[in-house]
């Protein structure tokens, strides 16, 4: 029966197309992995698209060199993500409770703040940091990140909070609870998955951010890992296994989080555009 064959052919074609696309999409990671594992000797003898005998030398050398910035990135990403999620959910609680028209205005401002090309604020940001003496410091970096990621946290949490049933909060009010009790005992535990999503999303975004540390730091040991990669770009005298090793070391943390907790990251992304359905 020809119809039957047509269907099978279609199914095979469907899978082949997907597999080919997946291979293309994985190709950069393949390049990343094989080259970060090349020894200096094989760098000189193989082009970057072909694997060679693996060695951990490059990875180890680079990790040693950038271990300080890795720690910085970890401190910054964790604290920025935690503060954005918590303060953001507090602001979201206000939006949820408030009924006035100001609500819409503030929400619009937060949406704009989330999506503004933050590069445009570089100059005033630096002036401000210098004025309050936190330029080129870890607190200064965290402060700068928060300016840009707190609105993101508030926006995401507002969207996650919107699905909370009103009656849960109303019954807490009837039970005599004040705002703080309602927030900490009812809202916070009930929006826990949204909170995790916001945390993961902001963590990955701030770990990967390049521009903010570029602008607000100028000593290497205050730098973050995504900024420090800059010094490993190709050029005369740079061997590509070091470049790739640095990129690999910088990408391991967000990629592992993506593989393990990707669904939370996706929920965060979806919430940014789609409302609470994500």
């Amino acid at each position: 029966m020809p119809n039957h064959y047509l269907r099978i052919t279609r199914r095979i074609a469907h899978h082949i197309v997907l597999i080919v696309l997946a291979i293309i999409w994985l190709f950069p990671v393949y390049v990343l992995v094989i080259n970060s594992l090349k020894s200096t000797a094989s760098v000189l003898t193989t082009p970057i698209l072909f694997p060679a005998a693996s060695s951990l030398t490059a990875i180890i050398t680079v990790s040693r060199a950038i271990s300080g910035t890795l720690l910085n990135s970890l401190i910054i990403a964790i604290s920025v993500a935690a503060v954005s999620a918590i303060i953001g959910s507090m602001a979201a609680y206000y939006f949820y409770r408030a009924t006035s028209k100001i609500n819409d205005v503030i929400f619009t401002i937060i949406a704009i703040a989330t999506f503004i090309p933050y590069e445009v604020t570089a100059v005033p940001l630096i002036k401000l940091l210098i004025n309050i003496h936190i330029f080129d410091s870890l607190p200064g970096l965290i402060f700068s990140f928060l300016i840009f990621f707190l609105p993101t946290g508030a926006l995401l949490m507002s969207i996650f909070l919107a699905v909370l049933p009103r009656s849960a909060i109303e019954s807490a009010r009837i039970d005599g609870a004040n705002n703080w009790t309602i927030f900490s005992k009812v809202v916070f535990p009930l929006t826990y998955p949204g909170l995790v999503s916001t945390f993961i999303f902001v963590f990955i975004e701030s770990w990967n951010n390049f521009f903010i540390p570029l602008m607000t730091t100028n000593t290497p040991n205050i730098s973050t890992v995504s900024l420090v990669l800059q010094s490993y770009t190709g050029g005369y005298g740079v061997l590509y296994n070091d470049s790739f090793a640095a990129a690999a070391v910088a990408s391991v943390v967000p990629l592992v989080i993506f593989v393990l907790l990707g669904r939370y990251f996706v929920r965060g992304l979806m919430a940014m555009g789609n409302g609470a359905k994500g």
Partner: peptide
Amino acid sequence: VEDRNVGMVFQNWALYPH
């Protein structure tokens, strides 16, 4: 509300699921 000393049973009961 907090000071009216009312109890309320909601249509969907609105129990705290957690």
